[in-house]
Amino acid sequence: MYFPYFATYMAVGIALAIAAFVWALKNGQFTDQQRARFLPLEDDAGAGEVKRSRMGRLEILALGFLACAGLAASAAVLVFALVSF
């Protein structure tokens, strides 16, 4: 018999959710929703947005090689598949 365990588990889950909901309600979490919309904007972190890459020549070559090798490997596998199919 496993139903009682599942039923208990679900009941506990619902009870916890209701408890959290009631806490939120009493705590005024559902009030002042207009202000809540702006919350992420209040911390204005001045982030260094990147404008252009700062890669050196060698890095460009190495990464370009890696990317091309990946693309070439994919293409080779595809061609092989199509030819041998």
Binding site: L63, L66, A67, A69, G70, L71, A73, S74, A75, V77, L78, F80, A81, L82, F85
Partner: peptide, 20 residues
């Protein structure tokens, strides 16, 4: 089989992207 091969090829792209 063909679809499995193409899938592996696409997997290469994702692996390379992870390294980059």
């Amino acid at each position: 089989h063909l679809y499995y091969v193409i899938r592996a090829a696409l997997g290469v792209l994702i692996f390379v992207s992870a390294v980059l």
